[in-house]
Design a protein around this nucleic acid. Structure first.
Length: 346
DNA sequence: AGTATTTGACCTAT
DNA sequence: ATAGGTCAAATACT
């Protein structure tokens, strides 16, 4: 994979270098034929963007090798660098450079989900995790308000995953979901139903569940690098949807390719949530840090939260996360992973 | 009664 | 000053 990654980096660098050279040529051409300050400014910006992109890529490439002890793959289905790794690398790079004590940025990525009338769902709320809404805000220039959710088990398991749901202006059936931070809680029971449990199997056959699976498959995954420097580095990796194309209504996707991958056990890292490929930003051992920190001057927890915390002592005893300081990614799979694909478990 | 959502106030970064 | 994000009391829901 390292080979594929390096190859991809080279290709990207080559492409960017070519683009930059062509922009330079264009500048030369424009300067000699019709000199204009605006054109020059634009070209400067284009060139500067290329230079930055190259710089980032080159740095990221070498960092990827330095950090090759990282526990999981850094490439996508076609071998391209995973933007989140890139994101992380870059952020860490930034943090090394500036000495600000700003709180560590959480990994951020965006999914898009379409809601259709036939699936009868009100909104893109069920992604396998349970969330609690904690706010809603009207956003300037947006027709619809933005909703803010946090993990239900924030206080119980110190899980700081949040998401924002924003209905699209262009297409009201599309919801843009911005996830921030990965789940460190143990929701695996919800996220990935165990294959052999009779109760679960019964649940799995409920039509609602099937609809949910189809719904989940509609989600279009797009990895964003907002956590970088949103002004200066408009780097944006965009993946065409894999899940959506598995949907029964859409036959454009080369399903055979996916099936091959699945059978060969080489299913794409793309199918694994980027959230799960990231190191934990908060270790489970610091579970009650926040409570003691804030409890001194105001009542931070509702009775229900306390109940959550108390009950968590029971539920976390069998948690695979408890006490672990390293990611469990190779085992943990994306809740959206299409397990109901024919032949996956057979 | 316990839990989740709503919503105006508050906080923070720009 | 403003916009976006979060808090928390009030309210709704189960």
């Amino acid at each position: 994979m390292e080979r594929a990654s390096n190859w991809e980096y080279q290709m990207l660098i080559n492409e960017l270098t070519q683009g930059m050279e062509q922009a330079k040529q264009l500048r030369f051409y424009l300067c000699t034929t019709s000199p204009s300050e605006t054109q020059d400014l634009l070209l400067q910006r284009i060139l500067s963007s290329y230079e930055k992109a190259l710089l980032i890529l080159k740095w990221s490439g070498s960092a990827g090798q330095v950090q090759s002890a990282a526990p999981e793959s850094s490439i996508t289905i076609d071998g391209s660098p995973r933007s989140e790794d890139f994101n992380k690398n870059f952020k860490e790079h930034q943090e090394q450079r500036d000495t600000s004590k700003k709180r560590k940025m959480l990994p951020t990525w965006i999914e898009q989900a379409r809601v259709t009338s036939e699936n009868g769902l009100e909104g893109p709320t069920d992604d396998g995790y349970s969330w609690r809404k904690y706010g809603q805000k009207d956003i300037l220039g947006a027709n619809y308000p933005r909703s803010y959710y946090r993990c239900t088990y924030r206080h119980v398991q110190n899980c700081w995953a949040t998401k924002q749901v924003q209905r699209s202006d262009d297409d009201p059936t599309v919801f843009e979901i911005t996830y921030k931070g990965k789940h460190t809680c143990n929701q695996s029971n919800n996220a990935v139903p165990p294959p052999a449990s009779p109760e679960k199997q019964e649940l799995d056959h409920k039509p609602q569940q099937q609809n949910q699976m189809l719904f989940d498959l509609r989600a279009k995954l797009r990895v964003d690098t907002k956590g970088l420097d949103n002004k200066e580095m408009p780097v944006h990796f965009s993946f065409p949807s894999t899940f959506a194309n598995v949907d029964s209504e859409n036959h454009n996707f080369p399903i055979s390719k996916l099936a091959d991958d699945v059978h060969l056990g080489t299913y794409s890292p793309l199918l694994v949530s980027p959230a799960l490929s990231e190191s934990n930003y908060f270790s489970a051992s610091s579970t009650y840090e926040m409570k003691s920190f804030r409890g001194a001057h105001n009542l931070q927890y509702s009775e229900s939260d306390i109940a959550e915390i108390i009950s968590a002592h029971a539920s976390t005893t069998n948690s695979p996360i408890g006490g672990m300081e390293f990611p469990i990614d190779p085992v943990e799979l994306d809740p959206n992973f299409p397990f109901n694909i024919q032949g996956f478990f057979t």
